[in-house]
Design a protein around this nucleic acid. Structure first.
Lengths: 243, 243
DNA sequence: CGGAAGTTTGAATTCGATCAAGATGGGTGG
DNA sequence: CCACCCATCTTGATCGAATTCAAACTTCCG
C-alpha cells in the first residue's frame, strides 16, 4: 500500500485485474471479461508531470488508471489554474466521454506521478457500457456520484473557509482511496504537492501550508511528501463541517 | 419578453409546446409528441419562494419549467447556503434523475418567482429518453453541457475575483436565455435578488452590491429588480476573462 | 399608508494574498 | 559517497479584497 508512488503494471489479462471490478465497466468485466479485454488497445506508461490530454481535443480512447495519480484541470489564459478533480487508481479518464463521445474535452489532464494506464477504444467501450441494464445503471450511478462530488466541491469553494476546504479534501481522498483498499487506518499515499491542493481549493500555496501546519500542530493529521495519516478522523470531520 | 416575471401557463397539449422542443426530451417531442404528452402527469403552479424538492428525497416526477425561475442549492447545517445553478424556462428538474432515477437528490430546489411546471412520470420519461439513438445522444450532450457548466463555475469560484465571477454569471445567464429566445440585444428578465447572486458566487450580499454598482457606474450593465441589460458585452466578456 | 424585503452606503475588521527569504530534502552527477 | 541543485516547504512581514456590523434608504405589496 505504501509503495503506491512506485509505478506498478497491470496484469496481462483484464480478466485478472482486480482493480477493474471497481471501474465504470466493472459489471461487464465481471459478467463477460473478454468483452473488456478485447477492447483494450494498449497498456501504456506515462511519466510524471505530463499533460496527456488537452482541453478541446476529442480523444478516441479512454484510459483506466492502473497505478499513479493524475488530475483534471482548467488553465486560464493568464496562468491561473483550477484543478477540477484528482484521479486515483481505478478511475477512468475522461469518464464523461463514455456517455458523450465525440465531444471536445472541457479540461486537460496531467499526471502527478508516473502512471500505468490501460487504453480502451472509446466508441466500443461506450457501446459495451450501455449494453446491459445492470451496466447501464451502474454507469448512471457513477455519473450521479460525479455530479454529487462536484456539488460538494462547489459548496466548499463557495462557502467554506480554507481550513474547512482542506479538511473536506483530505476526507474525500481518504474515502475514495479506502473504497479501493488503498487507505487503512487513515494512512494513505499522498503524492500531491501543496501547490496542487491550492489549485484545487482556490487558495495559495503559502496559505495551504499554514493550514496544513495548523492541522499538524493540532495532531489532526500527519504527513510527508508521499503519505498522509489522519490521526483524528472525528475532529477532521468536525472541522470539515464547521469551518 | 419583459413580462417573464408574470406566470404564464403552458398549452394544454405538449404537442403545441414550443419550449418543449428545446428540452432534454426535445427530439422525442418532435418525432412523436404523443409519447411525451401521455407521460405528463399534471400541470402545476408553484408559488414564489417554495422549496419544492428537498435534498435526500427520491422524486418520482420530473418537472419541466414552463415559466418562472428557480434554483438548486445546498444548505449547510449552520445556515450557509450554496446555490448550484439557476433554472430558467425550458429546464428540466432534476435533470440528472433522468439518467439515474431512484438516487436521492443531492440538493434542494426552490422557486425564485411563481412557476408553472409540467410534471412527468420519471421512470417512464427515463425510458423514453433512452429509446432512440438521436434522443440518447441529445441527452448525453445535455449532461456534458451540465458538466462543463459546473467546471466553469468551479473555476470561477476558485480562481476569479468577485468582479470576474459576477461578470461570468451575467454572461452565462444571458447566453442561456438567448438560446431560448428570452434575451434580445442584451436585455433579459432578471428576477434574482443580490442575495442569490452572493449565494451562487460565494460572496456576501453587501459585496455583490458593490460589484454590481461598479459595473453600473462604468456603464457595462444596467438593471432593476426585474430586468438586466448588458450595455457593453465586449467589456463584460473582457472583465469575465481577466478578473 | 405601513411594513417587510431588498438595496445602498460607511467604517472597522479579517482572512487569505503577496512579497521575500530561508530551510529541507530528494535526486544527480562527478 | 559526497556535493550540489532544484523543487518544495516553511516562516515572517505587509497588503488588500472581501467580510462584518450597522444603519439608512427604496421599492413594492397588501
Amino acid at each position: 500500500m505504501a509503495e503506491e508512488t512506485q509505478r506498478s503494471r497491470p496484469p496481462l489479462l483484464c480478466t485478472e485485474c482486480v482493480l477493474g471490478l471497481g471501474t465504470a465497466y466493472g459489471p461487464t468485466l465481471r459478467s463477460s471479461p473478454i468483452d473488456i479485454y478485447t477492447r483494450r488497445r494498449s497498456v501504456t506508461e506515462i511519466d510524471a508531470q505530463r499533460t496527456f490530454l488537452r482541453e478541446g481535443e476529442t480523444p478516441g480512447s479512454i484510459f483506466t488508471l492502473y497505478s499513479g495519480w493524475a488530475y483534471q484541470f482548467k488553465q486560464l489564459s493568464d496562468g491561473r489554474r483550477q484543478i477540477l478533480s484528482f484521479l486515483i487508481p481505478g478511475d477512468s479518464i475522461p469518464l464523461e466521454q463514455i456517455c458523450a463521445p465525440n465531444h471536445p474535452l472541457p479540461y486537460s489532464v496531467k499526471s502527478l506521478t508516473p502512471l500505468s494506464v490501460c487504453a480502451f477504444d472509446l466508441s466500443s467501450i461506450a457501446e459495451t457500457v450501455h449494453a446491459t441494464d445492470e451496466q447501464r445503471s451502474h454507469m448512471a450511478g457513477i455519473m450521479a456520484d460525479q455530479f454529487t462530488a462536484m456539488h460538494r466541491r462547489l459548496t466548499d469553494l463557495g462557502r467554506r473557509s480554507a481550513l474547512g476546504r482542506v479538511a473536506q479534501l483530505i476526507l474525500e481522498l481518504e474515502q475514495r482511496l479506502r473504497n479501493r483498499q488503498m487507505s487503512e487506518n487513515g494512512v494513505f499515499p499522498f503524492p500531491v504537492r501543496q501547490e496542487h491542493i491550492a489549485d484545487a481549493l482556490g487558495l495559495t500555496t503559502v496559505y495551504v501550508n499554514r493550514v496544513l501546519d495548523r492541522l499538524r500542530q493540532d495532531s489532526v493529521i500527519e504527513f510527508n511528501r508521499s503519505q498522509m495519516t489522519v490521526l483524528d478522523m472525528a475532529r477532521l470531520r468536525q472541522i470539515g463541517e464547521e469551518e
